[in-house]
């Protein structure tokens, strides 16, 4: 594809939508990651595997049991989140406020989960049946030709946005959110103020895993479902979180938009390899100049 071909408003519109839907998935995953880091100081290297579980949840609920798609996605997220409390109890709990140990211990969890998935589901890729095959057409009167938008991308974008809005509401306007924000600022002070950190940790864990599993379900539907589903989203979440600043919630949102958009546009213009190199390179550059990320705070 040549450069000028791309500069039509219609094509730009499609790339923009692609970018927006992928950005919103990255943001969801990154928010979970940054929440766990900001509040419990764990670096969740097993984050991608919870996304994979979300993918499997959707596969069964929607693909096998024919639960309506818009219900199946949040339901998959909720089931995965609740079931994952087992991991909270037996694994994560031991790594709270221990950043370095958590990195390696949770990499262990990641390995264990991936290969358990291989044992249970084998190593082949599966497809989650598409929910929406149609395309939306509009804008003919404006651009002269109509803008073709795949409905599933639009739905992915809307579902992620709804989840993000719910998350924002929870964090900013509920007691639970207040507790989390307090704990993120300073655990010891929060404890002294009578906040029960164990409860806050559990709530944050549920919330983080829920968002990740929803994102994983959507990601699995767009791409593929296999034991490897988690590795790419984890890497992206990583970049997003580093870009925005570890532990910063607005940072995760900003980082997600930057990465998702730049990746989509660069991949369309120059190919996937270039887009990967550019995004990694830019992140490393930013970190060297500003190690605490765009919106993070220096320590």
């Amino acid at each position: 594809m040549s450069f000028t071909d791309l500069l039509t408003p219609v094509l730009m519109g499609q790339v923009l939508l692609d970018g927006m839907s992928i950005s919103s998935i990255y943001i969801l995953i990154a928010l979970g990651f940054t929440l766990l880091f900001g509040i419990m100081r764990v670096v969740n290297f097993a984050h991608g595997e919870f996304a994979m579980l979300g993918g499997w949840g959707l596969y069964y609920l929607y693909g096998q049991f024919n639960v309506p798609f818009l219900l199946a996605v949040p339901l998959a997220g909720a089931i995965v989140a609740v079931c994952s409390l087992v991991f909270e109890q037996f694994v994560f709990r031991f790594f709270y406020q221990k950043m370095f140990q958590s990195m390696i211990g949770l990499l262990g969890l990641s390995t264990a989960m991936i290969y358990t998935a291989v044992i249970i589901w084998d190593a082949y890729e599966r497809q989650i049946p598409p929910a929406f095959t149609s395309t939306l057409e509009f804008g003919e009167s404006i651009f002269g030709e109509s803008l073709l938008l795949p409905t599933d991308r639009v739905v992915v974008f809307l579902v992620s946005m709804a989840t993000l809005a719910a998350f924002y509401f929870l964090i900013m306007h509920t007691r639970m959110g207040l507790g989390m924000r307090a704990a993120a600022q300073d655990v010891e002070v929060a404890e002294a103020m009578g906040i029960r950190t164990r409860t806050v940790y559990r709530q944050a864990f549920l919330l983080a895993i829920f968002m990740t599993a929803v994102a994983g379900a959507l990601y699995g539907q767009i791409y593929f479902l296999s034991y490897e589903l988690g590795s790419q989203p984890l890497l992206k979440a990583f970049i997003v979180v580093i870009l925005g600043g570890m532990g910063s919630i607005p940072g995760a949102a900003l980082g997600g938009v930057i990465l998702g958009m730049s990746e989509t546009f660069l991949a369309t213009l120059f190919g996937a390899a270039v887009s990967n190199f550019v995004s990694f390179g830019v992140v490393i550059l930013i970190l060297i100049i500003r190690p605490w990320g765009l919106l993070g705070k220096p320590e």
């Binding site: 140990q101 958590s102 211990g105 990499l107 262990g108 969890l109 989960m113 290969y115």
Partner: peptide, 21 residues
């Protein structure tokens, strides 16, 4: 038993890091 072996590896990492860093 490649898969089981990786699972054990993961669990050992968790146990080691949790109990004796």
């Amino acid at each position: 038993y490649v898969e089981w072996q990786r699972v054990f590896y993961g669990i050992i990492l968790i146990v080691v890091m949790a109990s004796m860093p």
